[in-house]
Design a protein around this nucleic acid. Structure first.
Lengths: 105, 105
DNA sequence: CAAACATGCAACCAAATGGTTGCATGTTTA
DNA sequence: TAAACATGCAACCATTTGGTTGCATGTTTG
């Protein structure tokens, strides 16, 4: 399992977020290509990628001398559920406040 | 401004996430109460709270000798938008795959 | 087969993080 | 007013993080 905090932590770095964005527009991609032009070394980027894999946000699949990377949507859905719950709570409060204001005036 | 990565980073710690959960069920709360029973010292928890404040996830308001904490929904909405975009991309892919499978068989 | 390619693994390092303690300061309350 | 309360600030520490480099290994390709 992956905890909510682990998922957010994995997304909480500009380079890792960039990797996720690239993956989201590429479906599947070799590590080498994915890790190019991120401003850090290949091995540095590879370590960041591994963090996404550990958080179940990306998954790896070895094909010949390449390793393909793909996005794993389950964790992201889990993260979104949490945030939208918070939003719902907030929305209810705003509605409650609006009611209150209308009663008072 | 707060970058996406900063928001996720702020949510990416179990104690900070617990603080956010408490805030979401309490509307507004004094620092002291909010930081109780988190398993770390008051000052430790206060530092974690400050990280949420810096990420514009929580806001502070001083009243007498207390400081009230409240949730700030804007950043959370921003975070959610990003995740739901990713989900949308994924959903489209699944649909495309389904079409493909149906054509082939 | 040799060279080029795609990648992995490990050691290393500076900086950031997550926590602590001690003490100072303003605010209620008995 | 003195004690209790709510909080802030700063120094300090161990661990994690984010990055590097060097080298090893399996895979294509000319």
């Amino acid at each position: 399992m992956t905890t909510e905090a682990e998922i957010y932590k994995a997304l909480g770095d500009p380079i890792r977020l960039e990797i996720v964005k690239r993956l989201s527009s590429k479906r599947s991609c070799a590590i080498g290509e994915l890790c190019q032009d991120l401003g850090i070394s290949r091995q540095g980027a590879r370590k960041q990628l591994q963090i996404l894999v550990n958080a179940n946000i990306a998954s790896l699949n070895s094909v010949g001398r390449e390793t393909k990377v793909a996005l794993d949507i389950k964790s992201l859905q889990q993260a979104q559920r949490f945030i939208s719950q918070l939003e719902k709570v907030w929305e209810n409060r705003l509605l409650a406040l609006k009611d209150f204001v209308e009663v008072v005036r």
